[in-house]
């Protein structure tokens, strides 16, 4: 089964799962960062125009620092998110999914130079596209990874049901599917929901509206509701 998830097992036997972010959102996030940087530099340039040669020197130093340390600063001190990455819900982590460290961040950003060659990050884009976890060369060298940040689930309105205990032999995946059916009661059409509920007829021995009601009742039990 093809998927873009990235799995790590901790020594305690806990499976951590992250969703690796591919080239398109990363390129766009980078574009947003470039936009911000240009904005800052343009503002600085206008501000320093009055200081003549000294202003030019300060501007050049600032542009150097912005180019190389703007991402490092945000990645380490702002939870792995530069403003561009934040806009797209991305974050940089070490490849064991721990927060990124100074060393790794500096390495991955200095190696942007290698990814840039021969022009406009062509190497980086190709490496990202071909790599298993969408890592560019800098990521590979620093052992880092760009993943989607999990967003907090907002509480949603669920249809009114009296919770019923699930039948036996429901694995975790099945339970998740039932919960998903309940949670998506607004997004899926009523007919489609009944059609899905009918699939389970051999187990529930119900059809149509009754089957759907029953599955919803089981789903709300699984979500912690008790009649």
């Amino acid at each position: 089964m093809l998927d873009t998830t990235y799995n790590v097992e901790t020594p305690e036997g806990i499976d951590l799962r992250a969703r690796a972010a591919g080239p398109v959102p990363r390129i766009l996030a980078f574009a947003v960062d470039v936009f911000y940087r240009t904005l800052i530099l343009a503002g600085l340039g206008i501000g320093l125009a009055f200081a003549k040669t000294a202003g030019m020197g300060i501007w050049l130093i600032c542009s150097f620092l912005l180019e190389w340390f703007y991402p490092v600063f945000f990645e380490v001190l702002r939870g792995g998110q530069t403003p561009g990455k934040k806009a797209f819900g991305l974050m940089v982590v070490n490849d064991n999914l721990t927060p990124i460290s100074w060393g790794a961040s500096i390495v991955r950003n200095l190696l942007r130079f290698a990814d840039f060659l021969p022009f406009a990050y062509a190497t980086g884009v190709i490496a990202m596209t071909l790599g298993r976890n969408f890592q560019r060369l800098g990521d590979l060298a620093a052992g880092t990874l760009v993943v989607y940040r999990d967003t907090d689930k907002v509480p949603m309105a669920l249809p009114d049901t009296t919770p019923l205990p699930p039948p036996r032999n429901f694995k975790q995946q099945d339970q998740l599917a039932l919960i998903s059916l309940l949670e998506r009661h607004d997004d899926l059409s009523e007919a489609r929901q009944q059609e899905l509920a009918n699939l389970l007829e051999p187990i529930t021995a119900k059809r149509g509206r009754a089957a759907l009601e029953y599955l919803r009742a089981v789903g709300s039990w699984l979500l912690g509701g008790r009649g």
């Binding site: 032999n169 429901f170 694995k171 995946q173 099945d174 998740l176 599917a177 998903s180 059916l181 998506r184 997004d187 899926l188 489609r192 929901q193 899905l196 699939l199 389970l200 051999p202 187990i203």
Partner: peptide
């Protein structure tokens, strides 16, 4: 997948198949 609940459909079919096999 979002509009038609394919993920749910696949899981339900799998469940029914397991149930019948058992």
């Amino acid at each position: 997948i979002e509009l038609e609940g394919w993920d749910i459909e696949i899981q339900f079919r799998d469940l029914v198949e397991r149930h019948q096999r058992a």
